[in-house]
Design a protein around this nucleic acid. Structure first.
Lengths: 198, 198, 198, 198
DNA sequence: CATGAATGAGACTTCATTCAT
DNA sequence: TATGAATGAAGTCTCATTCAT
């Protein structure tokens, strides 16, 4: 996952192996045995680093969340126009997620696996993300490009709606290119819906 | 699923029990034993009606698809304005799906379970759905309410984008009310994006 | 089994179907369902004619035994030389058995299935058979062709030994032609061993 | 099987337990649970050593084949007269098989169980065996004791016929003593049939 | 820290047999 | 007699987790 653990950090090594297998075979079809083999450690070793298969999965989710958080921070610092910025933010979160999880044929299972769990982990990321999007919208409104109010939306509602719509870009996208396309079109369409009507 | 089979039609009885359990516990956590118990039949009886657990699931998917198809047909026949019609169509498909599947904490697993399978089964429904949405958009354009072209979309592209966006209404909606709200807002926002810019 | 039951005698009809299936798929791999289907009756009907699967098998064995007994009687009445008569007797029993049972890839299972059972059923056939063979040997001795004594055998012992040897003709014969060949050679060799040493 | 593994070699321990149970109850009537219990291991442990019940059986067959092969080699090296040698060879193969398999009431099933499988495994043993028998016959011919040709047999045909006949010693022998008796008589009778007719 | 043999609950599926019609 | 839907015991195999070394 970007972090190509050499051999020292078994924790990361195991997580890498696990993510890889989960993406290819799904959570359930991947046995602890498989993970151990892929990580070149003994089965028992997994339990030295993770209390259970579920906790291993949780750690994975946590790591993804951290990486996304970092991505978001980096994008937030960049100076971009409204639409490019929105797109960049979506790419930092959704795009990243797509590449590492959603593109898997077992995405659904992975997301489901411990839905509540993931929810907790991604909560703060989601909050930050919503705030970032809202901020961009607010900037756009301040600059007179957008006008949520006349469209009947509060800024928060507009942000939430935009985000929800963007999540739809994944459903059955098939390829990342297609996913990016859809995402761009959804964003474009929604932003147009938020434009000041002359 | 609406059809509360009395005791005669065991096929439906079993499917009802299964859907119920799948929604509550997910596909894998629901054993054939559980289904049998819930349907008040013996384990072996399940195999008189369905060759395997997978086929049982398939039958369930097929039934959902049929019901959705029927819903869509009914809505398509109604005479409504653009936005209400779009919403009604989405409700006939997404709303229905939400109520029976997506609202489950195990929705993802259910959708994933036999992704390819479901894909095949829902293919024709999806096609019809896309066609219906596109038709409404075309009508809107003809009546001068919408103008996809000036928004930079072909009708097909607009329909696809709208549909994708609408699918996002589900992600973490939490409750049907919230889901309906989001859906309405997404549709409103997107349609506004397709309005003729004065 | 020669008796091609028309439709009146369900008893025989079922046995025919069963033997056929047993030969092709073995006792265990043949379900009562299969037999019922092949016999064009309902599963429950089987239980009107046979108390259980085992009893059905038993009836089959009994029928085979009867047919063999009849065969033996017919051959015993024929006027033949020593070797041809021995061969004819073996064909009436072993050959018949080979054609209907031993040639099956599941012969072993069929023979085993209820070994004790079959033993009882075939006991009298075996006794008659041994007696017939012994009689032929005695005739041969009387005619001066054979001389069991100088070979170190009593007539009974010679008969038993010859029969045992002949049973070996089946083991891995592969085809009936091969089986017949082996049988002929074994008989020839053994009879030569019983010849008066000049 | 002679090798009473203490507790270290579970592989052998399991095979011993399995052979024992198979002999008493047959292949199918013996469940993996039974084998596990008899070997004092957990069900899952069986699958650490054998991929499936069938493979367990296969391993058993292979082990028997190896032991027989060793037996044959030992006997082949001994310097014995024609008849004793033939008997010793038969005992090394058939006798051994009788003691470990054929004496079981479920012998047939065991032999049948995976007939093709066993066939492959025992193929080379059988080939060696046939060669050994043929060699003894050839030696006997060279020494002038036997004369296959005047009996109308080639050496190979004589060997094959003798072997086939010997296999008959098993059918319904009842006890090993009886089996050995029959075997001895069959061999004696057949060898007498191959003697030079003065 | 690391190993991997061992465990055993639990899952799916088959099929001989019964019984209400 | 005849039916065939229903039963449920029994069987094979998987895999997360533990623990002695």
């Amino acid at each position: 996952m970007g972090v190509k653990a050499g051999g020292a950090d078994k924790h990361a090594l195991i997580l890498d192996a696990a993510l890889n297998l989960f993406r290819h075979y799904g959570f359930r079809r991947t046995s602890m045995e498989d993970i151990a083999r892929a990580a070149n450690v003994a089965k028992g070793t997994l339990y030295l680093y993770f209390k259970s298969k579920d906790e291993l999965f949780e750690a994975l989710a946590r790591r993804l969340a951290e990486l996304i958080e970092a991505n978001l921070k980096a994008v937030a610092a960049r100076d971009l126009d409204t639409e490019p910025k929105i797109l960049a933010l979506f790419d930092a979160k959704l795009g990243f997620l797509y590449r590492w999880v959603l593109s898997s044929p077992h995405a659904a299972e992975l997301i489901d696996s411990k839905a509540q769990l993931s929810a907790t982990i991604f909560e703060s990321v989601d909050r930050d993300f919503r705030a970032s999007i809202a901020k961009v919208l607010r900037d756009g409104i301040r600059r007179g490009e957008l006008d949520a109010k006349s469209a009947g939306f509060s800024v928060e509602s507009a942000a939430e709606t935009l985000i929800a719509a963007a999540y739809g870009a994944e459903s059955g996208a098939g390829s990342e290119a297609n996913f990016q396309d859809r995402l761009a079109r959804i964003v474009r369409l929604c932003l147009r819906g938020l434009k000041k009507s002359a």
